[in-house]
């Protein structure tokens, strides 16, 4: 699995070398083993799904990648070198952005301001010069605003640019969260249940945006999702987890025909 050659997907996209590799990750909370010795990799340019029944440890896995949890054992190799223990904001600076299962936006702020917060990791001027808003701080904000506007245009949310997030319906809030993550211009984008609670039309829109992001910016995407139809359509490779263990890994077709996966989802007679 150490190759850097990559592979070509069914629809003809070239997938690059390994971007992030999880090596024998184990995560314990006291006596509870949330993740038990899991290894897999995420390659540059691919859409990688993590699926599994409730409590399988998917969100914990995402939290390890984003630096919110530190694994009890094992290590992460990111862009070729082992990643030391880091704070989440440090991980964000290294190009990992995420959205949350339960929307975590600033409800009282406008869409534009929320998306601007996604650029925080790219701002260098201090709090004082930002308050004076002159010279460097101003130029920096203008440059960042340009990036944000491109994201707003890309996700087609121009009409709600100045609307407070609290007034938006759920489906749009999800899109704003994606916008904020994209504004950080991540090399790895983590999506925690991007379609949860959406109706069919909203799911179709969101799927299209995920594919477009991957296509236009070449962003690598790791996502957790419960809707099997969506997962099988969107992703290039799928990791299946159950009770903290990895029980399957491969293309959607391989995973679909994997007996362990079928058992985990449909249950087995004991």
């Amino acid at each position: 699995m150490k190759d850097t050659e990559g592979y070509v997907t069914a629809d003809g996209r070239q997938i690059g070398g390994v971007l992030m590799e999880m090596q024998n990750i184990t995560l314990r909370f006291g006596g509870v083993v949330a993740i038990n010795n899991i290894s897999f990799d995420i390659r540059e340019g691919e859409i990688r799904a993590i699926i599994g029944p409730n409590g399988a440890g998917k969100s914990s896995m995402l939290n390890i990648i984003s630096g919110f949890y530190t694994p009890s054992e094992g290590q992460l190799i990111y862009k070729g070198s082992p990643r030391p223990q880091m704070k989440p904001y440090e991980v964000a600076r290294m190009g990992v952005a995420r959205t949350f299962q339960n929307i975590a936006l600033f409800e009282g702020m406008t869409v534009l301001d929320n998306v601007m917060t996604g650029r925080l990791t790219h701002m260098k001027s201090g709090i004082l010069s930002q308050a004076v808003w002159w010279g460097k701080a101003r130029d920096e904000e203008l440059a960042n605003r340009e990036v944000v506007e491109k994201v707003i245009d890309f996700l087609e949310i121009q009409n709600i640019r100045k609307t407070p997030v609290g007034r938006l319906p759920y489906g749009l809030k999800k899109r704003v969260e994606l916008a904020r993550a994209l504004a950080a211009e991540p090399s790895l984008l983590l999506l925690d249940e991007p379609m949860a609670g959406m109706n069919v039309e909203e799911k179709e829109d969101m799927s299209r945006f995920i594919l477009d992001v991957n296509d236009e910016f070449g962003t690598t995407i790791a996502l957790i999702e419960h809707d099997m139809g969506v997962v099988m359509d969107l992703s290039d490779r799928v990791v299946v987890m159950d009770y903290g263990k990895k029980i399957g890994d491969g293309t959607p077709d391989e995973v679909r025909n994997n007996q362990d996966v079928i058992d985990a989802y449909l249950g087995v007679a004991h």
Partner: peptide, 8 residues
């Protein structure tokens, strides 16, 4: 012509 693009 004017067109609003990228908020401007």
């Amino acid at each position: 012509y004017r067109e609003k693009e990228f908020g401007i």
